[in-house]
Simulated scan of single mutants.
Amino acid sequence: MKLSRQDPYRRRRSPISIVVIILLLVILAVFALAWMRGGPQPLQTVEKTIPADQLGK
């Protein structure tokens, strides 16, 4: 017995909706990885001592 194309129990998803779902999952994964790493780290200043005889050069 053939299934009717109008069968309410068997809906076909459009390929566009599958692409959108995958894209959302990728974006959420990127945000999760960024959050787990702690986000952008602020730059720290590095203080290096310079000997007095090299200051005038």
Rank of each mutant, 00 (worst) to 15 (best):
G39Q: 02
L25D: 05
I27R: 10
P15H: 05
T49P: 03
L43N: 08
W35P: 00
L3W: 01
V20D: 10
Q54G: 01
L3S: 02
E47G: 05
P8T: 06
L3C: 01
Y9Q: 07
T49Q: 06
Q44N: 10
Q44W: 05
A32L: 06
P15D: 07
P15I: 04
I18H: 07
K2E: 10
Q54A: 11
V46K: 14
Q44E: 13
I21V: 15
K57V: 14
M36D: 01
Q54F: 08
K2M: 08
V19Q: 14
I22Q: 13
D53N: 13
R37G: 01
R12K: 12
Q54C: 06
R37P: 00
G38M: 01
M36C: 02
P8A: 05
I27D: 12
Q41M: 05
V26Y: 09
L43T: 08
S17N: 11
Q41Y: 02
L25Q: 08
I50Q: 10
L28I: 11
P8W: 06
K48C: 01
W35E: 00
V20N: 10
P51R: 10
A34Q: 13
L3Q: 03
S14W: 14
L43H: 08
V19E: 12
R13M: 10
L24T: 14
L23G: 13
V26C: 15
K48Q: 11
Q6V: 01
P8I: 04
G39I: 02
P42D: 04
D53F: 11
S17A: 13
A29S: 11
M36G: 03
V19D: 12
K48I: 12
I16G: 06
K48T: 13
I50S: 05
G38C: 01
S14G: 14
L3H: 02
P51H: 07
I18E: 09
K48R: 13
T49S: 03
L33R: 06
